[in-house]
Write a protein that binds this DNA or RNA. Structure first.
Lengths: 342, 342
DNA sequence: CGGCGGATCGAAAGCGATTCCGCCGGCGCC
DNA sequence: GGCGCCGGCGGAATCGCTTTCGATCCGCCG
């Protein structure tokens, strides 16, 4: 196979110097149209393609964005990764992906591997708080969805979104509600829970009291199923009439538990999720949830990263309530008419 | 921030030449233990980290593996990506991910972007046949799951796996079966279908005849739901008693259609999938399917890529049947006793 | 008409590593 | 004892590009 042509070859073929070739390549500097034309002809004649590596060495910059996610298998992160990849591509950048498998050590080694690789910037969807990172970041880093270290955070407005869910459930008449929270060591888990609770407290002060019960788990299916099973295996009058989960996966687990216990959703029990993963629209019944605008998050994160100078302020984008079949009016209303057996 | 130390700094600090430093770095060449020690001390004293870019320029080789998938949002591909990332990491390599969004043009531009970037090798899970690729591949390329161009293929043994499903369904007594096939322009779609059909034909010759009906769609949820809805909206005696789908997503779509039409799975209808995505174990009822050993596929693909010389022969790994709740004995058996109304 | 500033371009100096080439010293062998 | 060979090392070239540094040339002002 013939050696790949270099700037030198192009320069000779066009009868100019390598400097000039480089100048037309970058497009910035002033080059006379005649020469520019000749160079462009030479480039296409030789099929020249710039050597990315050499450029990177010289400028110590690449057009690669590093992304670290806790688990690419998680549909929400997959969605995020897809959106980031698209957003990066739109800016002429490529994506390098690393999955930390929820291991904070792996997470940090991935970050420093990216640093070694002179990436243009790093986006990390944290699985830890990132406190142990020692490397001085020579490139912009931003946290997405969950805070990493002290880097600026782009995330859904968890508080606003959780409030949406609270309003929805309260509006449907539910007064005995269980909240399945996410891990308290994640900002997302904490904020969603706190906003939900404080909204409900607000209702309790101004209107009818609501019984709120909180259970903590991880964000995954199993947690949701296990917790819901506990919640729902009590006698009907002690059961919550609505379960709000901190993630779709928990909610789907809860759906499965309800089904196993033969509790009709949404007629006996309402279930809500958070994320709007694609699966949410495929389970039976379809899940009422919060849509996290993944592509908007991605776009913001990428442009923060690429901005000159890189953005340094947190950003938050609003979620929206997606009402589907898993939530409905509180059955208790009927019970109250026929006589409450409590 | 202080300039990063280079080989030159290390050399000075250790009192040797840069050549020697490089030699101990590579570990291959012969260096006297005394000097080796001094160099290592200097390295850790200065906190030296080799510059990946410079190394790449000089050797025109990196430790990055490029992966192109049709859609990272698809759980099966996400699984595959996760496994590949892990396998790559085990060999000290990183992963660069690109999602082609089922666009063959994007696919090819991603491949050539990888080529530009001097990756160590490229794994592509094709969404097209890759015929339009013009770049001469300067690095090993291998196809995973679906054939890309003329590059060696690592895939599940589709034929063997489809046969497993056919045997399972036939063994349960089903004689009126519908097969939801994948796109005929994918090798996976074709092979699964053909093996299934030919197995059924075999049964027809030696034993009872089976009515086999084939419908073609894409691999996604919607295709499965749509096709199943058509199939199942006929009167009960004309309906298939089993639907075998070419992907889990199709099967899950079919499950949803059956539910919407109030057809009991598995008592009135058996449904089987293909892939064993994690969701398969979460739907109701849990899906009988074929497990594609994603991590084994990934491991094989990576080692083929990294082998010296790179592997050139196709490889195939067997799938295994996972029997869950969505398949059961044919209800027809009963019907036959009470008199077949056909 | 001389000088001056800006536009334009060529030449060369790196970026940080690998690797080839050649020198040096010690060893074995004739 | 001399010669050749080889292990071990230092120095320099090199990978392909960007960018600085002057040099040149032009128009224009005084």
């Amino acid at each position: 196979m013939a050696r790949m042509p270099t700037v030198k070859d192009v320069a000779e073929h066009a009868g100019v110097s390598v400097g000039t070739v480089s100048r037309v390549l970058s497009g910035e500097a002033a080059v006379k149209p005649v020469l520019r034309e000749k160079v462009n002809n030479a480039i296409s004649a030789l099929g020249y393609r710039p050597n990315v590596t050499a450029r990177a060495l010289r400028t110590s910059r690449t057009d690669v964005i590093g992304l670290v996610v806790p688990d690419i298998t998680n549909p929400f992160f997959a969605q995020l990764a897809a959106s980031i990849e698209r957003a990066a591509l739109e800016c002429g950048h490529s994506l390098m992906l690393a999955s930390s498998h929820n291991d904070s050590e792996a997470e940090q080694s991935h970050v420093s591997a990216f640093l070694d690789r002179a990436v243009r910037g790093i986006i990390v969807v944290a699985s830890s708080d990132g406190s142990g990172l020692d490397l001085p970041a020579s490139v912009p880093v931003i946290s997405l969805d969950r805070r990493f270290g002290t880097f600026p955070l782009v995330s859904t407005n968890h508080a606003q979104a959780a409030t949406l869910i609270a309003d929805h459930l309260y509006g449907l008449g539910h007064r005995r509600i269980a909240y399945i929270a996410g891990p308290t060591d994640t900002e997302a888990g904490r904020m969603r829970k706190e906003a939900f609770v404080s909204r409900m407290d607000g209702f309790a002060k101004t209107g009818e009291a609501v019984e709120l019960e909180i259970a903590y788990g991880r964000f995954d299916y199993e947690s949701g199923e296990r917790i819901a099973r506990n919640l729902l295996s009590r006698p009907a009058q002690d059961r919550p009439t609505a379960i709000a989960a901190a993630s779709d996966q928990q909610a789907i687990g809860a759906l499965r538990a309800a089904r196993d216990l033969k509790i009709d959703v949404p007629r006996k029990l309402s279930v809500t999720g958070f994320d709007d993963i694609s699966l949410a629209n495929l389970v039976v019944p379809r899940l009422t949830t919060i849509r996290q605008p993944a592509d908007m998050l991605a776009r913001r994160a990428v442009s923060l990263l690429l901005a000159e100078p890189p953005g340094t302020a947190d950003e938050t984008v609003d979620g929206s309530l997606i009402v589907r079949g898993s939530s409905g009016p509180c059955p208790q209303a009927k019970a109250d008419i026929t006589g409450h057996t409590n």
